[in-house]
Amino acid sequence: MRDKMNSEVISVVIAGLGGQGILRASDILADVAFAAGWDVKKSEVHGMSQRGGSVNSDVRFGSRVYSPVISPGEADFLVLLAPEWQEHFQHYLKPDGELLSASEIDVAALPHRRSLNLALLGQLSRRLDFEETLWIGAIRRRFPPELVPVNEAAFRLGRETA
């Protein structure tokens, strides 16, 4: 029964260091899942721990989501912006969960080094059943117009190299 319940909810941990755009990435993912008609919960932490320390934001979606928080060992995906801290975040993943790490991204090919978060979302997008237009719509809503092209380009780069 538990397996059936859990299989109906997808849990994504987006992790890295404060300042890497983790909250923005999790906002975009939550927007996309919401626009696709799912129940969505997203959790994050503000304040002290944000000052350059390790942080993560949890996004969960499905037909009915209760907890906004992902327990250790229960994430389907770990999207990791700071590969050097993999050991710290690894315990969130299910045994058969998938790690999407920035170490797999060609940073030199990015339109801007701060768009790593969008490149990883691009990779994640290949593994989720959402239409591309939903992603692009969410990116356009979440960035000021002058930053949209760079972030769209990073997203597409990740999506195409996934």
């Binding site: 260091l17 944000q50 350059g52 320390g53 390790s54 250790p72 050991e87 710290h88 975040f89 315990h91």
Partner: peptide, 13 residues
Amino acid sequence: VVERVAGKPPQLC
């Protein structure tokens, strides 16, 4: 007891 490796502590910018 969840075994987890320590993360990066926050710091002054």
